[in-house]
């Protein structure tokens, strides 16, 4: 009971601190803007810990953060193997293949007006579909190992990147294109010097959406069959064994991998599209 009351107190304390910070005079500084969400997250984890311990929630319903941390620490090598199998082999290779294929396809579509007219509605349509559903088929075709996971990821990331890249390549104004024409620029010259840079914000939008899709695809594909390693495999078997601390540890890995992946792509975007209004400060 004491722990529960403590949880309420921690929550109120965190909230009070945050409201002081957010409504204080330093609210606009970078440090405070970083500090407030960190305090919020920390408060949430504390409350979780105290409530689980205080209410004696059994492990099979919700493990406490400390349980998860100890499961994480005890299974580091296993988690690392799963990470390599699912993220590096499955998601990352599929992501690279899918995005480059979509990029090349977008250039082809950009050169032919007919193809663009025909493929763009189809691409837009497919991008909204539940493509994860192809996972059982692709697992059947490419076997249980990472190849099938990469194939699912390729299919999942292809259309968002394609649609965004095609939209981006059409982003230049007639004036700009005419200017290139007066310089007697060839197609590729105007492509590399004008249209590709102008398309970058759109391309990166597609790439960023795809980072999450890649992880989702790789994990869900493992629910349909996998070797005895991999994040999706570990999650589904650990759920079966009711080892929820392991499941949560795996989810922590997935969350870290997902946000790191996104962060890296966002950083590359920042360095390449520093000229764009959305990146300027």
């Amino acid at each position: 009971m004491i722990l529960v009351i403590l949880a309420v107190l921690v929550w109120c304390g965190g909230w009070w601190l945050n409201s002081r910070l957010a409504n204080g005079s330093h609210a606009a500084t970078r440090e405070v803007q970083l500090l407030v969400p960190v305090i919020f997250g920390f408060t949430l984890v504390m409350v979780w810990q105290l409530l689980v311990r205080g209410l004696m929630v059994p492990l099979v319903i919700l493990p406490a953060p400390t349980d998860i941390a100890s499961a994480f620490g005890a299974n580091l090598s296993k988690l690392w193997e799963d990470f390599l199998q699912t993220f590096v082999k499955g998601a990352l290779s599929g992501y690279v293949i899918g995005c480059s294929a979509a990029f090349l396809m977008a250039i082809v579509m950009d050169r032919s007006d007919f193809l663009r007219r025909g493929l763009l509605p189809v691409g837009n349509f497919v991008a909204a579909l539940p493509i994860v559903g192809t996972a059982p088929i692709l697992v059947m075709w490419f076997g249980f190992d990472w190849h099938s996971k990469a194939a699912v990821v390729v299919v999942m990331v292809f259309f968002p990147v394609l649609v965004n890249t095609v939209a981006g390549l059409r982003e230049t104004s007639a004036m700009q294109r005419d200017l290139m024409q007066t310089y007697a620029a060839s197609y590729w010259q105007s492509f590399f010097k004008l249209r590709l840079p102008a398309a970058l914000p759109f391309i990166f939008n597609g790439l960023k959406i795809s980072t999450t899709l890649a992880l989702v695809g790789a994990i869900v594909a493992e629910f349909f069959g996998s070797p005895t390693v991999g994040m999706g495999f570990r999650i589904s078997t650990s759920v079966g064994q009711l080892a929820l601390d392991m499941v949560w540890a795996e989810i922590v890995v997935a969350a870290l991998a997902g946000s790191l992946f996104y962060g890296v792509v966002a950083m590359v975007e920042k360095s390449l599209t520093f000229w764009h209004p959305s990146q300027r400060r």
Partner: peptide, 24 residues
């Protein structure tokens, strides 16, 4: 307060494969 505390987490959570939670 809610803006500053919750919004960054809402954005970060979009980069997380939430679907991994489904079986659990």
């Amino acid at each position: 307060v809610m803006d500053m505390s919750v919004m960054p987490w809402a954005i970060v959570s979009q980069t997380i494969p939430i679907i991994a939670l489904a079986p659990m």
